[in-house]
Each structure stands twice: as structure tokens, then as C-alpha cells.
């Protein structure tokens, strides 16, 4: 453990120490590595428990994004007549809503790390980072399953309608998933610490989170945004992520390199800040819950 480093010079005997405050920049990575099994165990618990006593069980994982995409297709495609940049509408909406719901569910889980685990956190010690990490992993498993569905629908389109030929951009998919997960993780850590203390902020955040979906190209393409707002619009890390994913299904799709790089930098800072604050405050916030 890192805490022991300084201790060794004081007294070789002791291995661990708890004192009045956590020092900055101590992430307890060794402790976290030791608890890697617990991350998997929590993920398993959440996946097993969420579809207990439901009739169609894990099929909900398929059905949710499909139903969402259909609703978007009807409301935004048929009624509002939003363009889809030449991508078959169902693929267009499915791509947007799959990435968005991965982000939304991950963030909505991690931001309540303390509030929904108060009981366990008041009784047992383990590195608290185990919880948000397992939440992201759970959502990643669900995303994996949803991407299989996406692939099936895509294959169907490709062979029946011969549209939307795949491009090399598809190889970027793991990176896109990683960026989305990182965005939700960093933001979630930050919010979890703040809402644990100031509970009323939670309602405002929920409201902004819903608004944020409309600032993200989920139900419309980035191309409909007026020129003067384009720069601001692309600062949202999810914009280049979703646009890149969609670009994989049009001929001559372009990767938005710049915005993607900026998103990477933003996410890196968000994770760093989130981790820093989380590790500093993970035990102290429990006194105020």
C-alpha cells in the first residue's frame, strides 16, 4: 500500500495506517487490484439480479434500445422529419440511442455510488472505486449484447437493401466505447462526491442530464446545427463519438479527428479530477450521508 511508504521510514513494523485525512494523489491501486474479483462479483450480481422474476429476462437488454429506436424513428423521423445523413433511419437512431443509453446508464449508476450503497459502505471497508468500476463494467456487458443486436440488424440491411456499406471506421468502435465509458466514469465520480454531500443538487442534475441528451446528436445529425453553434456543439465529447460511429455506415464517412482528440483530452481531465476528488473524499463523505 502506498500509505506505508512514508511509514517505513518512521517505523518498519506497521503496514497500514489510518489518520485524520487522506493525502492527495493516493489512488490505492494495489488495494484496487487486490479487489479486482469484487468488481467482477458486483457486476455478476447486478446482471443476475436485474432480470430475476421477469418473464423474458435478459431479452430486455435487446428490447430496450430497439423500442427506443422505434419511438425515435416514429417521432423524430416520421413526424418531425429529421434528416439522417443518408443512413438507414433505424440504424441511425439505434446507433445514437445505444451510445447514449450506455453513457446515461453508466453515469446514472456511478453518480449514486454513495447514496445507493450507504448501507454497505457503513459496514465494510473495500476500495470504494470498486463500485463505480463494476457499474461501468455491467453497462459495458449490456452494451456488448446490444451491439450484437445492432450487428444483426445491420447485416440484415446490408444484404437485403445493399445500403450502408461498412467502412474501416468501424475498427474505431472499441475506442469509442472506451471514451464513452471514461466520460461517464469521470463525471460520475465527480458528481457522486458532490451529491453525497449536497443532496438537493441531484434533482437539478437529473434535469440537466435530460437536457444534455438534446445537446447530443442522438435523435438528429450534427449537420443540422447552425454554423455559429457548430464549434460549441462539437465540444460535447459525445458528439464526435456518436458521429464517428455513424460515419462508419455511410460511403466516404469522415472521422472528426480534431473533435475526437479534444474529447479525449476533456475526458482525460475529467477522469483525473474525478479520481482525485473521489479518493480524497471517499471515506469522509460517509460522515455526512
Amino acid at each position: 500500500m502506498k500509505q506505508s511508504a512514508k511509514l517505513n521510514t518512521v517505523n518498519k513494523w506497521w503496514q497500514y495506517e489510518t489518520t485524520a485525512s487522506q493525502k492527495w494523489f493516493q489512488f490505492g491501486l494495489k488495494d484496487l487490484y487486490y479487489n479486482r474479483g469484487l468488481i467482477l462479483r458486483f457486476t455478476r450480481r447486478d446482471l443476475l439480479a436485474s432480470y430475476q422474476q421477469t418473464v423474458i429476462g435478459p431479452f430486455w437488454i435487446f428490447l430496450q434500445p430497439l423500442l427506443t429506436a422505434l419511438v425515435y424513428l416514429i417521432v423524430f423521423g416520421r413526424f418531425a422529419k429529421m434528416p439522417t445523413d443518408g443512413i438507414p433511419p433505424i440504424l441511425f437512431y439505434l446507433a445514437g440511442s445505444t451510445i447514449w443509453s450506455f453513457f446515461f446508464d453508466s453515469l446514472n449508476g456511478t453518480m449514486y455510488t454513495f447514496i445507493s450503497n450507504t448501507h454497505i459502505f457503513n459496514k465494510v471497508y473495500f476500495p470504494r472505486l470498486v463500485v463505480p468500476m463494476s457499474i461501468i463494467l455491467t453497462q459495458a456487458v449490456r452494451l456488448g449484447i446490444q451491439l450484437v443486436l445492432f450487428a444483426l440488424i445491420y447485416v440484415f440491411y446490408y444484404f437485403i437493401f445493399h445500403t450502408a456499406s461498412p467502412s474501416k471506421i468501424l475498427l474505431l468502435l472499441p475506442l469509442l466505447v472506451l471514451l464513452t465509458a471514461g466520460f461517464a466514469f469521470g463525471l460520475g465520480l465527480l458528481i457522486s462526491i458532490i451529491t453525497a454531500k449536497y443532496r438537493d443538487l441531484d434533482n437539478i442534475l437529473q434535469f440537466f442530464l435530460r437536457l444534455f441528451m438534446f445537446a447530443t446528436p442522438v435523435v438528429y445529425p450534427a449537420s443540422i446545427i447552425p454554423d455559429k453553434y457548430q464549434a460549441l456543439f462539437w465540444l460535447n465529447p459525445l458528439t464526435p463519438i456518436i458521429e464517428t460511429f455513424r460515419a462508419a455506415f455511410v460511403e466516404n464517412g469522415k472521422i472528426p479527428y480534431y473533435p475526437l482528440a479534444i474529447a479525449g483530452i476533456e475526458i482525460f481531465f475529467l477522469i483525473s479530477l474525478g479520481l482525485l476528488l473521489f479518493k480524497k473524499r471517499e471515506l469522509d463523505v460517509m460522515d455526512s450521508i
Binding site: 517505523n11 465494510v124 460517509m286
Partner: peptide, 26 residues
């Protein structure tokens, strides 16, 4: 059990601590 921090002072130990403040936690 390392669930809360002391306001002053320190606890030092060696080896692994497990705490049972409740049974069936989780």
C-alpha cells in the same frame, strides 16, 4: 474498520483487518 476516519490520532496495523459490524452485509 476503516469506514470512518478519526478526527485526530492514528491507527496503525499489520496484516489484514476484516470487520463484521453486521452479518450478511451485501
Amino acid at each position: 474498520s476503516r469506514i470512518a476516519r478519526p478526527t485526530t490520532g492514528s491507527v496503525r496495523w499489520k496484516g489484514k483487518i476484516s470487520s463484521l459490524l453486521e452479518i450478511g452485509t451485501g
